[in-house]
């Protein structure tokens, strides 16, 4: 049930972002679905593995793959779908907590939170990179056959 709620929240958040970035009208709903799906995957994986970094990687991988797939289906650049979809995974909460620990002079906790933010950002990059390579390989494989 909570996963469904999380999907709904992230779906609407991604739609809001698509409008904010001026995405084409018929791409707004698909990018909302891809953002919602990736956040739900992150949420599920985080509750199973209890590892934010790995969960972020999986979410980013899903956004990248869905973005490339939707780009082919709707004949639009992949960024139109990836840019709004990636935003839910950006570690805004970690950034806030790092800052709030720093302000409270709680440096040990700040380092913990800050390192996690850094690696989550790296995980987003890795997720998109791996998904791009993945889809390119599939496309090349299909062209050969």
């Amino acid at each position: 049930m909570s996963v469904l709620l999380q999907f709904m929240y992230s779906f609407f958040a991604t739609i809001g972002f698509a409008i904010y970035f001026g995405a084409p009208v018929n791409s707004i709903i698909p990018s909302g679905i891809s953002g919602g799906a990736s956040w739900s995957l992150y949420y599920i994986m985080f509750s199973i593995l209890n590892d934010k970094i790995l969960a972020t990687f999986m979410g980013a991988f899903l956004v990248g793959t869905l973005g490339e797939a939707l780009a082919i289906k709707y004949k639009k650049p992949a960024t139109v779908f990836i840019t709004p979809g990636i935003v839910p995974l950006v570690p805004g909460a970690g950034m806030y907590y790092t800052m709030s620990y720093l302000v409270g002079r709680n440096f040990n906790k700040a380092i913990n939170a800050g390192t996690e933010v850094f690696f989550m950002a790296a995980a987003i990059a890795m997720g998109i990179i791996v998904s791009t390579i993945f889809t390119r390989t599939i496309r090349r494989f299909k062209r050969q056959n």
Binding site: F17, Y20, I82, T83, P84, V87, A93, Y97, I128
Partner: peptide
Amino acid sequence: LDKIIIGSIMYLVPGVSITNSIR
């Protein structure tokens, strides 16, 4: 308070720069 602040700064997140720099 923490959840409200986190939510209200999220619209500033540089989504386009992140995606474009990676791609």
